[in-house]
């Protein structure tokens, strides 16, 4: 029987969006049966358009910067967009797939995406803004699968 992996994706920033999609697509390639449960800010990763997924240098002291940048400067308007643009250029230069491409590879490999219904309601998200290959469910839906997995990660 195939091994199983479950991931809980709770973050919606560019840097934290990569680990769930990388691990899910790779595990699927290795023959795992994979499910990803998107909750809280992780739900942003299910939007059809991922261009608003951003990275912020603010409160992120580990982020490598070309020049040291004081927090006062990081707060300025437009810094988030600039950091996001720079990060995307870097990812592209190094041949790292875009989030959209990785998500597509997950879906092609039959990774199952579950969106947390409670958080969808809480944030009043419009389901029509999400991709279609998503199931909606709660904690017990997820635990039904997660309880039987070989790997279970909270990201």
């Amino acid at each position: 029987m195939a091994k199983k992996m479950a991931i809980i994706a709770t973050k919606g920033t560019l840097d934290m969006a990569y680990p769930p999609f990388i691990l899910a697509s790779t595990a699927a390639a290795l023959g795992y049966d994979v499910q990803v449960f998107f909750t809280f800010y992780g739900l942003q990763l299910l939007r059809k358009d991922l261009s608003n997924v951003m990275i912020s240098p603010l409160a992120n002291p580990a982020m490598p910067m070309p020049i040291p940048m004081p927090v006062m400067v990081q707060m300025l308007p437009g810094m988030e967009s600039m950091a996001t643009m720079m990060m995307k250029q870097k990812l592209k230069k190094h041949g790292v797939a875009s989030l959209t491409e990785l998500r597509e590879l997950c879906l092609e490999a039959d990774v199952k995406f579950i969106a947390c219904q409670m958080t969808v309601d809480l944030f009043e998200f419009d389901k029509s803004e999400f991709i279609e290959n998503v199931e909606y469910g709660g904690a017990s839906t997820f635990l039904g699968f997660a309880g039987d997995t070989d790997i279970c990660l909270f990201i």
Binding site: I22, S25, T26, A29, G95, A97, L102, L105, A109
Partner: peptide
């Protein structure tokens, strides 16, 4: 060539 993790593996599988 030019691809980074996880693309070489995922696409090898494909």
């Amino acid at each position: 060539s030019g691809m980074s993790c996880p693309l070489p593996i995922v696409k090898t599988k494909k």
